[in-house]
Amino acid sequence: MKIQGKVHKYGDHVDTDVIIPARYLNTSDPKELAAHCMEDIDKDFVKNVKPGDILVAGVNFGCGSSREHAPIAIKASGIACVIAENFARIFYRNSLNIGLPILECPAASKAIRDGDEVEVDFDTGVIRNLATGESYQAEPFPPFIQNIIQKGGLLASLK
C-alpha cells in the first residue's frame, strides 16, 4: 500500500496538549477534534491540511497525555501518515491501535522539508521525497500491524 501527499513539518517534542488541547476533550467526535488539531502551535494547520497529507516531526512526537483524542484528531484532519525521528510510547501504541500509520525514520525526519511532496510505501517502509528525489528506509510494519491499519484499528482487527 502506497500513499502520496504534501508534508506539514514540525519540530521536537510535539506534545499531545498542542496536538489537541484539553479544552476540547469534552468531546470525542473525530470531526470536532480535527477542527482544533495542532491549533496551539500552528493556527493555519487546519486550513492548510488536505486529505492524504503527511505530518513529519522530530524526536519524541506525541509526548505527554495518553489521550487517544490526539491521533484521532490527526487522522480525522486528513493526515495519512506521521513520520518522526521517534515517538513517545503511548502515542505510538494509540496511533497503531486506531489505524493511523506512523513511521520512525531519523533520516527522513531530518531531510524532509515543509511543503515537500512525499510518497510512502507501507509494505517496504521506503519513503521517497519527490521534491528532491531522495529516498529513506523506515522499518516496514510487520503483518499484524498492517492488518490493524487495514482493518481500521485494533478492536476491528479482533473481530
Binding site: N94, N97, L154
Partner: peptide, 20 residues
Amino acid sequence: SHTCTYGALGAFSTGVGSTD
C-alpha cells in the same frame, strides 16, 4: 498517562490509550 504513579507501591503500572 500518569497511571505510572502506582510504581511507588512496587507494582508495574503504565498509561495506555482508550483502545488498549
